[in-house]
Amino acid sequence: MDEHPAVPILDISEYHDPATKDRFVEALRNACHHVGFLYLTGHGVDHRLNTAVTDVSRDFFAKPASVKREIAMVNSPHFRGYTPVGGEMTGGRADVREEIDLGPERPASHDTDRPWRRLQGPNQWPTSVPDFEPIMTRWAQDMDRLGRTLLDALAEGLEIDSDHFRNWVTPDPEATIKAIRYPAPVEGQKPQGVGTHRDFGLLTFVLQDAVGGLQVERADGDYIDVPHLPGSFVVNLGEMLQVATHGYYKATVHRVVSPPVGVERFSTIYFFNPRLDATLNPVDLPEHLATGARGGASDDPNNPILDTYGDNILKVRLRAHPDVAELHHADLLHTTTR
C-alpha cells in the first residue's frame, strides 16, 4: 500500500490475483477503518471512457444558460437534471457550482405510503449534447461493476459473507451520477465549492481533473488536500456503511474549496448506493474487529442517520434542493431533519 498525502493508494487489480488478494483486502480494510478515503487504481474502467465523460460534461456546461435550463432540476420531482450555481445547499449555505444529476431510468412512482418512492423516475437528458446519454449510460454500467467488486472486498475485510452487503444492492442499486463544474472565482472571492459534509450512501467514486480542491478532515480537525492522481478514482465511504459496521468503516467529513482565481474545475461523481427500500441490517463483527468499532450513529442531533436508505436520501435531497422540495414535495417538508 503506497501513500499519497495521507490518503492510501490501492490497486484493485490485486484483488483478482490469488497471490495478492489477501494483501489488498487487508489494505482496503485498514484504509476504510482509519481514513475513509483512498485512491483506487487498476480499476479497469477505460481511460478513453473517463475522458469522454469529462468531455461531454464540459460540452454541456459550455452551453448558454437558456439551453441548460431546458432540463432544470426544478422541473423534476425526482431530483434529476440541471442545477445552476448556488442552487444546491450544503450545511445551510449555497454551493458555488453547477451540476447535472442523473439516476436509474425508471417509471415515475406515485406511492403515497412510502414517500421515498417519489425519487424514482426518468432522467432529463441534455439533447444539446447528443453523446451525453450514451456515454454516461455506459460509464454507469462500468462503475456498477466496480462498485459491486469493491463492496465484496469490503465484506471480506470484515470476515463476513459477501451476501450481507450484496443484498443491499440486489437486484439494482439506487446509483446516481453528478457531473459538476466549479466556476472560476474572481479576485477577492472565497466561495464555498461544497461545504463540509459526509456522503450518505455506500461508496462514492470521484473522477476529478487536475485542478484540485477536494479536502478531507483529519482526526485533529485539520484538512488535507486530495489532489488529482492520474488513472485513479478517489473513493470514500458513506454514512450507511458507517452505521451498518458500527463505525468500524468510516464516513469521513470532507469539502471542496473553490478553484484558484481564473480557473474552473470539473469532476464527475458516481454514488454507489443501496436500493431505496434497503434496510441496512448491522454487521456482526468478529471480536478482534469489534473492539475497534467507534459506533456509527451521527453525532449531530439535527442529522440522524436513518436505517432505510430511501428515508435517508430523501431527507438529504429535500434539504439540498429547497426549490424542488417546495414545488413538488411541500407536504414532506415538516418531516425532514436535514
Rank of each mutant, 00 (worst) to 15 (best):
residue 132 F to Q: 03
residue 105 E to Q: 12
residue 26 E to W: 06
residue 26 E to K: 13
residue 159 E to K: 12
residue 175 A to C: 13
residue 259 P to W: 00
residue 227 P to R: 02
residue 24 F to R: 10
residue 218 R to Y: 09
residue 142 D to I: 04
residue 49 L to C: 07
residue 193 G to A: 05
residue 145 R to D: 14
residue 295 G to A: 11
residue 182 Y to T: 01
residue 110 H to L: 09
residue 266 F to L: 08
residue 9 I to M: 04
residue 12 I to P: 03
residue 290 A to N: 12
residue 183 P to N: 05
residue 138 R to W: 00
residue 311 D to K: 09
residue 333 L to M: 15
residue 285 L to Q: 05
residue 252 T to R: 13
residue 128 S to R: 04
residue 194 V to P: 02
residue 106 R to D: 09
residue 83 T to N: 13
residue 300 D to E: 08
residue 45 V to S: 10
residue 273 N to T: 09
residue 274 P to H: 08
residue 88 E to G: 09
residue 326 E to Q: 13
residue 116 W to R: 05
residue 214 L to A: 03
residue 25 V to P: 02
residue 305 I to H: 05
residue 265 R to V: 00
residue 319 R to H: 15
residue 302 N to Y: 12
residue 281 N to G: 12
residue 172 D to W: 10
residue 212 G to D: 00
residue 99 E to L: 14
residue 94 A to M: 07
residue 126 P to T: 07
residue 142 D to Q: 15
residue 312 N to C: 12
residue 92 G to H: 08
residue 101 D to N: 11
residue 78 H to Q: 14
residue 275 R to C: 11
residue 141 Q to N: 11
residue 309 Y to V: 03
residue 188 G to P: 01
residue 222 D to N: 10
residue 218 R to F: 10
residue 327 L to F: 11
residue 170 T to I: 08
residue 77 P to G: 04
residue 203 L to Q: 04
residue 101 D to L: 12
residue 48 R to T: 12
residue 109 S to G: 09
residue 203 L to A: 02
residue 117 R to C: 15
residue 150 L to Y: 06
residue 26 E to A: 15
residue 59 D to K: 14
residue 23 R to V: 13
residue 78 H to C: 11
residue 329 H to E: 08
residue 281 N to W: 10
residue 7 V to Y: 01
residue 126 P to Y: 06
residue 262 G to Y: 00
residue 99 E to K: 12
residue 114 R to H: 12
residue 317 R to K: 15
residue 153 A to R: 03
residue 299 D to P: 06
residue 271 F to N: 05
residue 289 L to R: 05
residue 292 G to C: 13
residue 162 S to H: 11
residue 259 P to T: 00
residue 320 A to N: 14
residue 71 I to N: 08
residue 113 D to T: 13
residue 70 E to G: 11
residue 327 L to V: 13
residue 289 L to F: 06
residue 305 I to K: 04
residue 77 P to V: 05
residue 161 D to W: 09
residue 285 L to T: 04
residue 114 R to S: 09
residue 284 D to R: 14
residue 330 A to S: 15
residue 45 V to I: 15
residue 309 Y to S: 01
